[in-house]
Design a protein around this nucleic acid. Structure first.
Lengths: 209, 209
DNA sequence: AAAACAATCACCCGAAAGAAGTATTTAAAG
DNA sequence: CTTTAAATACTTCTTTCGGGTGATTGTTTT
């Protein structure tokens, strides 16, 4: 076997069983070793500081913060960090945000382990890797206009079951302005009404219930 | 160590990494052994027929069918099968359905592995075990009236962005009847409007987007 | 048999939502 | 400096929604 230093991996996920699976898989490879695990965003940042792993596997939803936020926190301190998102599918917007924020790869937990090992090696070698399943989801909504921050706020309020009048009060704007925002939201998401807009927003990972 | 025959376990989950984690955990215990894995409902049924495991760990969402349906298929053939749901949280209705359909336990993937081992041993010994986190979720909606099948159909149609008139056409009923159904749905779910009803329905696992 | 529930339909009515157009202000980008 | 985009606000008009009341039919449970 090779005498090269092994690829040092950090796994961040709030499911202990999944971390165990990743650890077993990694440690069975001769050229990789698991150096630390983390179950939350905070632990992830601390673990990275302590171990400086070559590759970090990061879940999207963590108990304390989003995996993207945790990744950004790490990249802020260590811009050369190589982070791969490893998650169940969450909608094209999450993928887009993760990649825009500096993720080097995006894997689904349903993919075969060989794919994971492959991506780890590729990313360690300095490449980016987005599997075709993920890429096609991304391509699906390529031309689509993104919602503005304000529109997302309004959509969240709609998802919470608020009437336009209530939304207006909460956001300190007129009810007419709320209507305009919702009109734009429905156009951008190709939704037939506010309920459809919420459903699409959830499916695409723009908002969460 | 003991000479007792080991508890034979089948793991059903479409995430290979999680199966690997479960397998590692189980096989590290002296009194347990993993006899088979399955990535779909069909594989689960076939795997059960072939190996007759003492305890089956079943995920809720599988590629081909719901984990509950897979469980019911197994219980139909082998009524004495001991099946534990192992899943991310999906809402109280799924828990209720799983237990009503004959699950002997209900675990969350975020729970510590020791909890999993404990539940496997308890269930193997013929007991049922619902951890307090799950039980409290269940208790949250104890008195609540359940939606009827028709109401769920209507709620699904609402979630798809249909107007009352469209729902009426699709279900071959009058728009007035649709209104009555939606009124009942909103009452039962304590929703402020149809959008809220969809949001609550998704959170509680009554419908899926 | 009686009571309870589920599903169906009807009519009325006010409140809310959505469509379309116009317009002002501010901030960012060219 | 001009153009563009975002957020704001208003008016008008039409459609849809949701509340209330009441009624019929069939099924299930007691």
């Amino acid at each position: 076997m090779s005498k090269l230093p092994a690829i040092r991996v950090l796994s961040v996920d709030d499911h202990p069983l999944l971390r165990e699976g990743v650890a077993t898989l990694i440690n069975n490879e001769l050229d990789m070793t698991m150096v630390a695990e983390a179950a939350s965003g905070l632990e992830a940042v601390q673990g990275f500081r302590e171990h400086k792993p070559d590759v970090t596997l990061m879940d999207l939803r963590l108990p304390d913060m989003s995996g993207i936020d945790a990744m950004m926190a790490i990249l802020c301190e260590f811009p050369e960090a190589r982070i791969v998102m490893l998650t169940t599918f969450e909608g094209d917007v999450e993928i887009q945000r993760a990649l825009a924020a500096g993720a080097r790869g995006y894997l689904l937990k349903s993919m075969p382990p060989s794919e994971l090992l492959d991506v780890i090696r590729q990313v360690h070698a300095g490449k980016k890797r987005i599997p075709p399943e993920v890429a096609s989801q991304l391509a699906e909504h390529m031309g689509d206009e993104l919602l503005t921050q304000r529109e997302i706020e309004v959509l969240r309020a709609v998802a919470d079951g608020n009437r336009n009048r209530d939304i207006a009060e909460k956001l300190f704007i007129s009810e007419e302005t709320v209507k305009v925002h919702i009109k734009h939201i429905m156009e951008k998401l190709h939704a037939s009404d506010r309920t459809d807009a919420v459903a699409i927003g959830v499916r695409r990972g723009i908002i969460h219930l």
